[in-house]
């Protein structure tokens, strides 16, 4: 014979006690255990209130075709120099030495962002000249779009000197972001969208390396060329040029930004609720 449900209703059971009983005490303890441990747990775990968070993005880096090159050509400090800034070239006078430069930027994975730059500078030298040290500044534009739109003009600084006269300086490194403070989580940030070298200035102080690097290091967000070790090749044939060959990659960066208080509140509530549920179930 099949059985079927005819009717159902919930039953309410009431447990009553007077105030000064063990049951009241138990009830109070359970109540305390339900609310206090979640708070303690969330407070004591260090991630209660997050101030910083990170995200990952490959920057949009474009070579600005700004180059400043100074090479020492004797142990007495004679030098030749060249830049893409006409005002500086005018200042240099007889020390101006125009090299042949080739630049190629490649988007390897076809994602619309350039991944690396190949730079080659061939500095013609007279047979009496030898290169002992090189200063090279390359200007880039560096943009991030994921959280805040951050646009800046940055530089890669390459410096190497050697007691031995060289024929080739080979650099292969990453253009890394250097953050002293977190970026905004939204909005447009063009604080540092100014040229690293003020090429419109006719004054020599604008091209002084201590000024350029000093002003650049003042920035809270900048880029630095991280190259494990330079390759300095010696042995240059007479009348052959000194070559600077550089491969500069634009890697994906981990960027810190301030975690928003609203999300913090949300996370904390979630956290406390979870703990509450856990302890509630334990109390039961």
């Amino acid at each position: 014979m099949a059985i079927y449900e005819v009717y159902s209703h919930p039953a309410l059971l009431r447990y009553k006690t007077s105030i000064c009983t063990k049951a009241t005490l138990f009830l109070l303890i359970v109540l305390g255990l339900t609310y206090i441990p979640p708070l303690l747990v969330t407070y004591k775990s260090q991630g209660f209130w997050i101030k910083l968070s990170t995200y990952e993005e490959q920057p949009v880096v474009k070579f600005q075709y700004q180059i400043l090159m100074i090479a020492t050509t004797s142990i007495n400090g004679d030098y030749v120099a060249w830049s893409t800034f006409q005002n500086l070239n005018n200042l240099l006078g007889d020390s101006l030495r125009i090299p042949s430069v080739s630049v190629m930027e490649v988007d390897k994975n076809q994602d619309g962002k350039y991944d690396e730059m190949t730079f080659k500078l061939q500095l013609p030298l007279q047979s009496t000249e030898q290169v002992y040290s090189v200063n090279l500044i390359l200007g880039f534009s560096y943009s991030l779009f994921r959280m805040s739109t951050f646009v800046m003009q940055s530089m890669a600084y390459i410096q190497h000197s050697s007691p031995l006269p060289g024929s080739l300086l080979y650099v292969n490194g990453d253009l890394k972001l250097q953050q002293r403070q977190p970026l905004n989580h939204r909005g447009l940030d063009t604080r540092y969208n100014v040229s690293v070298i003020n090429g419109s200035s006719p004054f020599a102080s604008a091209y002084d390396l201590t000024n350029i690097i000093g002003n650049y290091q003042e920035r809270n967000v900048s880029t630095v060329l991280s190259w494990p070790s330079p390759l300095w090749m010696t042995g240059r044939a007479a009348n052959s040029p000194f070559v600077i060959s550089a491969v500069i990659r634009y890697p994906v960066e981990i960027i810190t930004y301030p975690f928003q208080n609203f999300f913090n509140l949300f996370v904390c509530m979630l956290y406390a609720t979870c703990c509450y549920v856990l302890f509630k179930s334990l109390a039961k």
Binding site: A81, L88, L91, G93, F203, A204, S205, Y207, D208
Partner: peptide
Amino acid sequence: PAPAGNSWCSNGNPVGFLQ
């Protein structure tokens, strides 16, 4: 004359008015 990029004098450095 002023140094441009190193310690040697660049003779073409101009003087700006009031600078």
